[in-house]
Amino acid sequence: MTAEPAQHQPQHHPSPPVVVVMGVSGSGKSTVGGLLAERLGVPYAEADDFHPPANIAKMSAGHPLDDTDREPWLDAIAAWVAERDGLGGVVSCSALRRRYRDRLRAAAPRLFFLHLDGPPELIAARLAARMQHFMPPGLLRSQLEALEPLDADEAGAVVTIDGGPQQIAERAYAALPR
């Protein structure tokens, strides 16, 4: 009796995900996004860096952005996620409305959203303690009003923001699809 040659199936290694860490200002997107990217071994991008100077000036003056203001910003983030599709990456982006997430998803259909969520009082306290950021705490209310939670048909998960950054990042990592 002769032994059959071993069958070797090619190993399929899924590519790292491209993740948008979303939520209102002060929810921890930048901190958690950086920690998550480090854990995944992929590049991290800060969405604030994609804003044109006019947007930063407007927010610094205490005025919320409108959809026209957001168009070039979302397009720049969409270009980044498209470049990272199949390679992996993490970007922080408020992505408060479904239509903004759809615009990003059009650039990278497998995009995964992690919504950092918590009580408004906790977020307001974090915003008040933050130094040297152009987003004034007074705009939190407008962001909370604009926030459209992830719909059931959107690839994503909600991550609570209670605890320290490492704990939140671990919950975010655990929420990623395998």
Rank of each mutant, 00 (worst) to 15 (best):
residue 142 S to W: 07
residue 168 I to M: 01
residue 145 E to Y: 10
residue 176 L to D: 10
residue 174 A to D: 14
residue 23 G to I: 02
residue 123 I to A: 00
residue 59 M to D: 03
residue 73 W to E: 05
residue 87 L to N: 13
residue 12 H to C: 06
residue 12 H to V: 14
residue 168 I to L: 03
residue 175 A to E: 07
residue 37 A to E: 00
residue 99 R to F: 09
residue 53 P to W: 10
residue 13 H to F: 06
residue 163 G to E: 06
residue 40 L to M: 10
residue 95 A to S: 13
residue 49 D to H: 15
residue 10 P to K: 12
residue 112 F to D: 00
residue 63 H to D: 12
residue 31 T to Q: 04
residue 86 G to H: 11
residue 119 P to H: 14
residue 60 S to M: 08
residue 62 G to N: 10
residue 8 H to L: 14
residue 84 R to A: 12
residue 83 E to C: 02
residue 100 Y to L: 03
residue 153 D to T: 15
residue 82 A to E: 09
residue 19 V to I: 07
residue 40 L to H: 04
residue 145 E to W: 09
residue 87 L to D: 11
residue 118 G to C: 08
residue 116 L to A: 00
residue 129 A to M: 07
residue 48 D to C: 08
residue 53 P to E: 07
residue 28 G to F: 01
residue 34 G to A: 05
residue 69 D to P: 12
residue 38 E to K: 12
residue 139 L to I: 08
residue 40 L to C: 04
residue 107 A to Q: 11
residue 78 A to E: 01
residue 143 Q to T: 08
residue 91 V to M: 07
residue 129 A to W: 07
residue 169 A to G: 09
residue 5 P to E: 09
residue 161 I to P: 00
residue 4 E to S: 13
residue 111 L to N: 01
residue 161 I to S: 01
residue 46 E to K: 05
residue 96 L to G: 02
residue 72 P to S: 09
residue 42 V to H: 10
residue 75 D to T: 13
residue 10 P to I: 02
residue 150 L to C: 07
residue 103 R to P: 05
residue 149 P to Y: 04
residue 80 W to E: 00
residue 74 L to K: 04
residue 170 E to P: 04
residue 9 Q to R: 15
residue 155 A to G: 11
residue 67 D to K: 15
residue 163 G to W: 07
residue 59 M to V: 09
residue 115 H to N: 08
residue 169 A to F: 02
residue 125 A to H: 15
residue 6 A to W: 12
residue 7 Q to E: 15
residue 166 Q to F: 01
residue 64 P to T: 05
residue 82 A to T: 02
residue 23 G to C: 05
residue 13 H to Y: 04
residue 66 D to S: 15
residue 88 G to P: 11
residue 127 L to Q: 06
residue 173 Y to E: 09
residue 73 W to L: 07
residue 82 A to W: 04
residue 137 P to D: 05
residue 117 D to Y: 14
residue 166 Q to E: 10
residue 137 P to V: 08
residue 157 A to H: 13
residue 168 I to V: 11
residue 158 V to A: 12
residue 95 A to M: 04
residue 31 T to L: 00
residue 106 A to F: 11
residue 97 R to H: 06
residue 85 D to W: 12
residue 62 G to P: 06
residue 74 L to D: 04
residue 148 E to I: 05
residue 152 A to G: 13
residue 26 G to R: 00
residue 146 A to K: 06
residue 76 A to S: 13
residue 114 L to C: 07
residue 161 I to K: 01
residue 2 T to D: 12
residue 96 L to R: 01
residue 64 P to V: 06
residue 26 G to T: 02
residue 16 P to T: 08
residue 145 E to N: 13
residue 13 H to K: 13
residue 118 G to N: 08
